[in-house]
Design a protein around this nucleic acid. Sequence first.
DNA 1: TAGTGTCCCCTGACCCATGT
DNA 2: ACATGGGTCAGGGGACACTA
Length: 287
Amino acid sequence: MEKLAQQTQVLANWYRESDKFSTLMNYQILRAGHIRTAENFHVRRQSVVGHELIFCLKGSGFVRLEHHLYEVKEGCLVWLPVRWPHEHFPHKDEPWEILWIRIDSEKLSNIMKILDVPQNPVFQFDNPEKVTEIYHHIFSLMKSHTLVTDAHCDELCARLIFTLLENRSTEVTKSPVITHRGLGRLIYQIHSHYSDDWDIDIFMQYCQVSKSQLFRLFQMTFNQSPLRWLKKYRLSQARRLLVETQESIGRISGQVGYNDPLHFSRDFHREVGLSPSDFRRREQRMD
DNA sequence: TAGTGTCCCCTGACCCATGT
DNA sequence: ACATGGGTCAGGGGACACTA
């Protein structure tokens, strides 16, 4: 089929100044719009205020954040913390049509961290129509600017954030149900003493099972092997310590159970995509 | 038949040395 | 602080056996 040369069509575009109404709300919508892109459409920015939530209505596109490139397919939403250097552009073969809003709120940085957006900014939905509906509802309200419409937009932003939290709750906040008594005992011990020297033999002793049974238990409960689970837990504690304290990387690596800071740095980089010091700098920049 | 244990082999994590 | 390469060995998982 012959491909027609297309131009980007801006189907809707709104801009809001911060004023006495908007500062009353939890979420301030700064910009919003609906764009049908051509293949040459490309946005590249160093830093702007707020967070952009881009929903891919049709086609597909890409976003780049912190040197990582993510594909965004039809029915997916990407959360872009636009204070960081970023870019987005459509797939050449099927340029995307997007609905987007740029919102700001002092709460968003924390919500973003809880949702693990820096590592995983793309959201997929079982029911994307629910998200589209929220965008269109916001757009219809953006046409007028009153205290009532602003309050309504605030409610819709909260609903959108709720949808994202709900969407990711299975990955982020759901604790696996631990039915095995020995495994429960082991997990409790690790949470209390995660910096101790743990190995498979000690795991087996706590659980009172053989090695293969231990692996099966971890696979069933956490969908990963015992030491991989331990490593992820230690690195999550390291992230917390890097943000909450000013301890050196070497000291933190020891506190979370690594004998070798180099080994810690390498694992951290693999898991987070940044070195521990870069991660700390970035988190401090966000506050 | 489901649950569990044993054996065995390959992979990759870890440690160390070295360099930037 | 971080990267890289090489040697070592524990982890991981498949195949099969055992047992209640």
